[in-house]
């Protein structure tokens, strides 16, 4: 199970990669494996404001549906439109091509509430 060191995680199995005041958000390898084949991702729109640990979309797999929780608050500045036609990118490459949204963080201090790769590893073990 891949858990990149340079990302921060939520206990709801999302990851965020912080670069300056921008965060790229996706779900973890563990989450995609648990969900199985992803068939649809309900995405927010560019310009939407999302709130830390509140749902910003949902992810439908064959067997189940799951909310996507925002690791941080902010304004959505880009969504991965490739997911509309290829939602399985989330299964194939959860930390790369399967990213979900980019946000401009409204409160940098929120990252302190996220967990590290080590903590996340312990969580799913």
């Amino acid at each position: 199970m891949e858990i990149p060191e340079d990302l921060l995680y939520t206990e709801e199995h999302e990851w965020v990669y912080i670069e300056g005041d921008v965060g790229i958000i996706g779900i973890t390898d563990y989450a995609q494996a648990e969900l199985g084949d992803v068939v649809f991702v309900e995405l927010p729109h560019v310009g939407d404001h999302i709130q830390q640990m509140e749902p910003f979309g949902s992810i439908e797999a064959v067997k189940t549906v799951s909310d996507l929780f925002a690791p941080v608050s902010g304004e959505v500045i880009e969504v991965n439109t490739n997911l509309e036609n290829n939602p399985q990118l989330i299964n194939q490459d959860p930390y790369g091509e399967g990213w979900i949204i980019k946000v401009k963080l409204s409160n940098m201090k929120q990252t302190e509430e996220l967990i590290t790769a080590d903590d996340y590893h312990n969580l799913i073990e």
Partner: peptide, 19 residues
């Protein structure tokens, strides 16, 4: 990849992927 309890048995749900 995944085994769950179904009908009182531990059964495989998925090997490669459901699809």
């Amino acid at each position: 990849k995944k085994i769950v309890e179904f009908g009182g048995y531990l059964m495989p749900v998925q090997y490669s992927s459901i699809i």
